[in-house]
Amino acid sequence: MSDPSITQALVELSNGDASAHDRLFPLVYDALRDLARRELRRERPDHTLSATALVHEAYLKLVQLERIDWKGRAHFFGVCAPVMRQVLISHARSRNAAKRGAGAAKLPLSDALAVAEERPEELLALDEALSRLEALSPRQARVVEARFFAGLSVEETAAALGISPATVKREWTAARAWLNRELAG
């Protein structure tokens, strides 16, 4: 099931060919969207799949593991972040349209997938706020995409974005505070 073109693009990206990133995006998008759709459609009380798991599952399924080193893996996760954002926002939009008027559960949800499904209007608000944060600090927006939409760990985010884990933590703290304030206010 692994896609040679995705693996190939990752290899080229690792070798310094920046244009490979553009090729990668649509490929990963299609795959992640299908995976996410499958998970979101399941009517299961225990929604066991999270954004983290989805991205990791995509990695296992799409990439020819034996050809990829840790740098390639980081690149893959790096692409997954913005892709997941688009996939989930698009899902939230359709959910929002369907759910208009229905009362939303008031439980705090921390997983992007769950939020897209259960409280789409919040996710859309977050997306909009994130676009505004991007104008202030593009890097913080990237960190939020990685940590929240793709569920990457601090270490994975650091590798994907090419910054230190300490920096990731700082950016995440600041961005989080700002976004929470925007959404609450």
Binding site: P108, T173, R176, A177, L179, N180, L183, A184
Partner: peptide, 9 residues
């Protein structure tokens, strides 16, 4: 906002 229980925990 940092201390509050927001969307992004």
């Amino acid at each position: 906002a940092h201390e509050a229980d927001g969307l992004l925990s």
